[in-house]
Amino acid sequence: MAERKTIRKWFWVWDFDREERWLNQMAMQGWALAEVGFCRYTFEKCEPGEYVVRLQMQKNDPDYVAFLEEIGAEYVGRIVQWIYVRRRAEEGPFELFSDTQSRLDHLNWIARMLLAVGLMNLVIGVVNAFSGNAVGAVNVALATLLMYGLGRIHGKVEQLEQQRELTE
């Protein structure tokens, strides 16, 4: 069995592209993502650059995973709504999105999730505050953070939409 190592690291949801870059840097250095957990990434030794790693927010869908496997990708794992896949670089360029529309759809899906969880926390926070429960402050703080994240995602959406102006 290949040599393994585990790294604990935290990425905010809105930094998913930075997370993906980091995972690919690890692969370039000869460490292929092999397992994922909450704030935990386990790598196994590989040839430098042997794998390309991608991640995507996607609802649980075995058909999609089966489809990814059909095109030669390996399913590494899932954390909540995020799936992690890798494919051998020798099989050619590996992307999960190939046009602007689908990249925008993906970002909008992330934005909806952040908004839903943010609003839920806001409601819980306000209800707690009115019933004199100090825990509500934590929910309000979390809601504020998620709204910040939503702003970051909207920034990425705007960037893509600007690119799409006059072109597809």
Partner: peptide, 21 residues
Amino acid sequence: MQRTEELSGGRVRLAAGTLYG
């Protein structure tokens, strides 16, 4: 995916997530 790549002479490569969506 294969048919699209073939029809477009290799120019259009559909990615898995794009196609699935």
